[in-house]
Write a protein that binds this DNA or RNA. Structure first.
Lengths: 351, 351
DNA sequence: CTGAAAGCGCTTACAG
DNA sequence: CTGAAAGCGCTTACAG
């Protein structure tokens, strides 16, 4: 590293104290306009870059937020993160990103590191594995603000921004049934995770409403990724008892389902109706008849960080907030013509 | 914040100095095995979390890397970041993520903040706007390691990991021509960005090789996102002179093209051959005939951070390295059956 | 409006 | 193997 210019260097050059320099740079009212301008000018000339490490250490505020997600590539989390990042920048915060890869152990490690880094707050979307509760107790004990988004862990007293998964999947499956489908499989997540459980419940609600009996072999839990979709639907295909439609718990799961169809039952291509949670903006790329339960990723991210910053920047302890957003159904063949390029382009069949 | 346990608290409890505690915790050989164990045990009991801010400030090493990308949602950058994150965690580093949203000004701001945070190194993929060179000079002056990935800025003397864009697009367009296509449009990026220029050159190379004259109205520069694809291809469609195929400079651009087709020329759907750079794993979701020039996102990310950590952790200055990876062509109809779920599943027509 | 002191929580050298 | 000193680069709180 080249030699860095410090406060003291500027101070010496100007024959004032470093405190005055520090204050001038931060627009502290203590300092006269003239000296403030002079200090700023000199700082710029000398190529001064404040050392945020030092500033954070002494001010006990890092202006940094930790974000933990299970995955990013091909998932709606990338859109959440984009929204979070944008807002963070706008508000003068930096984002430390950590990916748990759906593992509770990595999630714990990341949170510990983030605590050690003294971030000002945490935004987390839980992995599919049962959480390590101890680390969350530590977060609470340190009085560190934390907001869950999309995938929360309940009963810990932290705020959350989620989607009404049960209602969303109920509406979607109900729609399918009203269109005449009766044989609908569900490649589910895991019931240990709220979203997995809720989505499954919504599916069951809809079948029940129409007096369609649950068919156990058509409900397969396991996870949220391609691999699970592939394995689970492969099983169904090989059983010989083929449904007319399949409800995938996530977008990646639906990709796995497609792959299984291609491999085991190419003749089914284009015939089987697929339904999945996901970002509406993705639904137009689907080769198959595909209905998307749209999760408003940008909004989730935006609200989550807003609630968090609120907690971070307020003096008193705030009671936890729980924001629940609605999904919307996207049926490409019906209404996808002009709406493509808008932020939330998505015709709301129901909301 | 609750009271944090510090080194000194452990030291007092054990009647030793904080230096010994510090060393014991970091497995410094100075300390006897017994006291080391004792210290660790006590630290755990007391719920000690090291303050990384303080550690970084005094050790002059933050074990933190800055990553700047133009975008994440729906782009191949999310896969790069995933790979970077994984490797970083493995090597004990944290990642500070910043999104420039294709703006040089935001890119500069982010880099400045990252410098101020005293990250140990920088991984950047340049925005489409002409860069603010001054900030890169500052990076150089501070002797801060930086590695460009995918989108580099040349002539600055930093290492880079890129893809052979010119060759990749040449091969792809050449393939199309050999399949009998002759009327091929190109929705290009901008020539100010290396990848934009190179991809366009590869396209031109292929046409030239087959003595197909360049048709200026079919080559439209502008950017790398949906909006540009939509606007540019909309123009072509409305001109009335319709090509048989179109080469999109990125995956998002191809999405914009699809939207334009849906809006202005629905009859064309499924008939126009589309070609785009992107991640191979995405190519199976395309509704249209779509050929993908696969960019090995995970590898790009992995190599980039490896080169960076090499520079960060070595004493001497290393000469810049330039790694150029090959793309591969993915033709879904031909060879997509079994390869779906592998990491790099992609049949290499040419590499 | 300006300044001198103390401190944030750690590590690095150096002495024993 | 252990310790006392100095310092990393800032900010906070208090006195003038």
């Amino acid at each position: 590293m080249g030699k860095r210019v410090r406060l003291i260097d500027i101070a010496r050059r100007l024959n004032i104290t470093k405190v005055s320099v520090s204050k001038a740079l931060r627009d502290h009212p203590d300092i006269s306009t003239e000296t403030r301008e002079l200090v700023k000018k000199t700082a710029a000339e000398m190529g001064y870059t404040p050392n945020l490490l030092a500033r954070s250490l002494s001010s006990q505020r890092s202006h940094t937020l930790g974000v933990v997600v299970p995955k990013i590539a091909h998932t709606f989390f990338s859109s959440c993160i984009e929204a979070i990042q944008e807002k963070a920048t706008e508000r003068g915060y930096g984002i430390v990103l950590a990916v748990s890869n759906e593992k509770a152990d990595l999630e714990r490690q990341h949170i510990e590191r983030l605590l050690a880094m003294r971030v000002d707050g945490l935004l987390v979307s839980a992995s599919k594995q049962p959480p390590d509760l101890a680390v969350y107790e530590q977060v609470r004990a340190m009085n560190m603000p934390l907001v869950f988004f999309d995938r929360q862990i309940e009963g810990l007293g932290f705020s959350s921004v989620t989607v009404d998964d049960r209602k969303g999947s109920f509406e979607a499956v109900n729609y399918l049934i009203e269109q005449g489908y009766r044989k609908i499989a569900h490649i589910a997540g895991t019931s240990a995770v709220t979203i997995g459980r809720e989505r499954r419940l919504g599916y069951e609600d809809a079948l029940r409403k129409h007096n369609i009996p649950l068919h156990a072999p058509w409900i397969i839990e396991g996870g949220f990724d391609e691999r699970h979709g592939f394995d689970a639907f492969g099983e169904i295909l090989q059983s010989g008892n083929i449904p007319e439609a399949v409800f995938a718990t996530t977008f990646p799961v639906s990709l796995g389902i497609r792959a299984a169809i291609r491999k085991y039952a190419p003749a089914l291509q284009g015939k089987l109706q697929i339904l999945s949670f996901g970002e509406g903006t993705m639904s137009e790329f689907h080769t198959y008849p595909h209905i998307c339960i749209n999760q408003p990723a940008h909004q989730i991210g935006k609200y989550a960080i807003e609630i968090l910053l609120n907690e971070v920047e307020s003096k008193e302890d705030k009671p936890p907030q729980h924001l629940v957003l609605n999904t919307s159904l996207i049926i490409p063949s019906r209404n996808h013509l002009d709406a493509t390029l808008d932020e939330v382009p998505l015709a709301r069949v129901k909301s």
